[in-house]
Design a protein around this nucleic acid. Structure first.
Length: 644
DNA sequence: GCGATCCTTT
């Protein structure tokens, strides 16, 4: 018993529908008023769940499966939704079903299904679909043509993309934008520039895609220049492209700057700009700023966006706060994506909680989310940092045999680290020699690091030789080898390495550390000239060292590069950037608050000892994030159990 | 009654 007013009411409900919960209520209403089989209503429900509402695609599939004989509109809608989903290939199956039922695909169908081919990077499928469109006379349709241009580019066939564009009789602005994007996709920056110059019209998207293209190509200055040159009416995409681009290239200050600037210009942050600025916080360890962003995200409701919550989780983890990372993870409830699981496993691993990381991985195996190769990198990393050798080997085999994931050089890197760090250098070397992919510099460098920990001079020399072939100018490798000689007391070899470094004009990568005090990030560089904060830190450091020596501290100078006088060596170690940062923190941060430091290189043995002592003598908790993990110093010991 | 091009975390 459905009246016209019920129908009208249902339509107005559909117009205001914003969430899945909302949609379910409307479905219940439709059912109650006998409208649940009304084809128009069904079509709108399908459109909402497939396209408009995030993460509702499964609901859409269920709805679709109950529709007796779906029409072309319904097929197109679900194909569209699936083509943007995690599994774009499913939409190809649906397209096949549509054809089996003798429903004629139209220009809409091809625009959506070609997108699925693009998203699954399947040139074969894309080409076949192109042929079918041709047979149906739909390949000249402007919307189809534009999608063809981007499909070919996405599948790496730039020539076909150009051909599709050149054969378009009257390309419009969107077609032009598509071909410029296509050039950037295929790393042809000059091609993109020359087409951009020849464009008969430009809209905001044209400018935005230039920004994105430059950013992706690592041409940061060109992006900045373009940003200045474009019309002043920027949109949230323009701003987020800049923020994400700089953050991605490691230029956190620039990312923060653009974020603040966009705020000043009255542009509200969006999900994308928030992930960008959070990633900048994660890089620099800006914990306080991260917390402020968290408040804003919750208040404005951005925590429903999975990528934002994931970025927040990662920020807390990389700022040393594993508990907050865990809370964000749990708040995500059933919305956890593969990235959320992987990030949380990595977070636990970074903090040395290897057993918990593996436990979480097992929990993940029981969930609906299937682990991928990146998840296994986190798992193996967890094993290597916690010294779980057998667990690591088992998971490595499991990945290949049960999950059918081919190991990449990153997986081997974790395994070499696992064996090498544990002192099983032969097993590590054996693995490297039997790798199914060519070992790269990272692999050899990991092995060299293991030689350094375990003082294996012979293997180190062999490994360094391979590194010199692949990457002769890397300062870290020279420094590591020279440290190995130094520890072994082979001073003539130390001197030889130093001479060759001078001859090849190789400079040591300067170590830096950062610390956030009252939402300002201060950075310290080893051997930096005098400036305000360095002076302040040095003065405090002298006081600390004196106190520690009274407690029986003896400097460890094994990691000093050259054979110099003992006192001089001590001086060099005592100015390491992390010591300056911790001293600055002790001087400036209020009593009882945690000291958080981020360092670009691995923390040295002496600094590690000093941190442990400070945590005991001064009764302070110190968190140091170095190049590879976290160290939590508390009451004289470190969370890494001196295994790093 | 849907459409095509730009920014998303591990």
């Amino acid at each position: 018993m459905c009246s016209g007013s019920c129908f009208q009411h249902c339509i107005s409900l559909l117009k205001g529908c914003k969430s899945l919960k909302n949609l379910t209520q409307i479905q219940a209403y439709a059912s109650k008023t006998g409208l649940h089989n009304h084809r128009f209503i069904l079509g709108q429900l399908l459109l909402l769940s497939s396209v408009s509402i995030a993460d509702a695609i499964e609901h859409a599939c269920r709805l679709f499966s109950h529709i007796p004989s779906p029409d072309a509109f319904m097929y197109n809608t679900l194909i569209r939704g699936l083509s943007e989903s995690q599994a774009p290939r499913h939409s190809l199956l649906l397209y096949a079903q549509m054809r089996r039922r003798f429903l004629l695909p139209d220009s809409f169908s091809f625009a959506f299904i070609l997108k699925a081919a693009a998203n699954s990077r399947s040139l074969h499928t894309g080409t076949q679909l192109h042929c079918q469109a041709l047979a149906l006379g739909l390949d000249t349709h402007l919307f189809v043509r534009t999608t063809l241009v981007s499909m070919y580019a996405e599948c790496g066939e730039i020539h076909h993309a150009h051909k599709a564009f050149d054969e378009t009789p009257q390309p419009n602005i969107v077609t032009w934008n598509a071909i410029v994007t296509a050039c950037f996709r295929c790393d042809d920056v000059e091609g993109a520039e020359s087409l951009f110059d020849r464009m008969p019209w430009r809209n905001l998207t044209s400018w935005n895609l230039m920004l994105a293209g430059y950013m992706k190509a690592g041409k940061l200055e060109q992006a900045r220049t373009t940003f200045k040159a474009m019309p002043p009416q920027k949109d949230p995409v323009s701003w987020s492209t800049m923020i994400v681009g700089f953050a991605h290239s490691g230029c956190s200050d620039e990312a923060f700057g653009f974020f603040r600037e966009s705020h000043k210009m009255g542009t509200r942050p969006n999900g994308v700009s928030l992930t960008g600025v959070l990633s900048a916080c994660a890089q620099t360890g800006a914990f306080e700023f991260g917390k402020i962003l968290h408040c804003y995200i919750q208040k404005a409701g951005y925590d429903h966006i999975v990528s934002v919550s994931n970025a927040l989780l990662d920020t807390y983890a990389k700022c040393g706060n594993i508990d907050m990372a865990g809370l964000v993870f749990h708040w995500m409830m059933e919305k956890k994506s593969i990235v959320s699981w992987t990030s949380m496993i990595a977070a636990l691993a970074m903090h040395g909680h290897g057993e918990e990381a593996i436990q979480l991985f097992h929990e993940m195996e029981g969930s609906a989310v299937r682990p991928d190769g990146i998840t296994f990198i986190s798992v193996l990393y967890a094993c290597s940092h916690a010294g779980l050798i057998e667990q690591g080997s088992e998971h490595f085999s499991k990945m290949i045999e049960i999950y059918g994931i081919e190991p990449t050089v990153e997986h081997y890197g974790c395994m070499v680290d696992l064996y090498g760090r544990a002192g099983l250098l032969d097993r590590a070397y054996e693995l490297v020699m039997g790798m199914s992919v060519e070992p790269n510099t990272v692999i050899w460098r990991t092995l060299l690091g293991a030689c350094s920990i375990h003082g294996n001079v012979l293997l180190a020399e062999q490994v360094k030789e391979r590194l010199s072939e692949l990457d002769p100018n890397n300062s870290g490798d020279h420094v590591l080898l020279s440290n190995i000689y130094a520890v072994a007391g082979e001073w003539s070899n130390v001197a030889a390495v130093r001479r060759s470094m001078t001859k090849q004009k190789i400079k040591k990568t300067p170590g830096w550390s950062t610390i956030e005090v009252e939402k300002v990030v201060y950075s310290f560089i080893a051997g930096d000239g005098p400036n305000g904060v360095t002076e302040e830190a040095l003065e405090k450091l002298r006081e600390i060292m004196l106190k520690l020596k009274l407690e029986g501290y003896v400097p460890e100078i094994g990691s000093v590069l050259h054979d110099i006088e003992e006192e001089e060596k001590e001086d060099a170690v005592s100015r390491h950037s992390e010591k300056l940062a911790v001293a600055f923190g002790l001087a400036r941060l209020c009593e009882g608050s945690m000291i958080r430091i981020v360092k670009n290189l691995r923390v040295c043995k002496d600094c590690h000892t000093v941190m442990k002592l400070i945590s005991k003598v001064y009764g302070r908790e110190i968190v140091v994030r170095d190049r590879s993990r976290f160290h939590l110093f508390r009451q004289g010991s470190c969370s890494c159990r001196d295994y790093w």
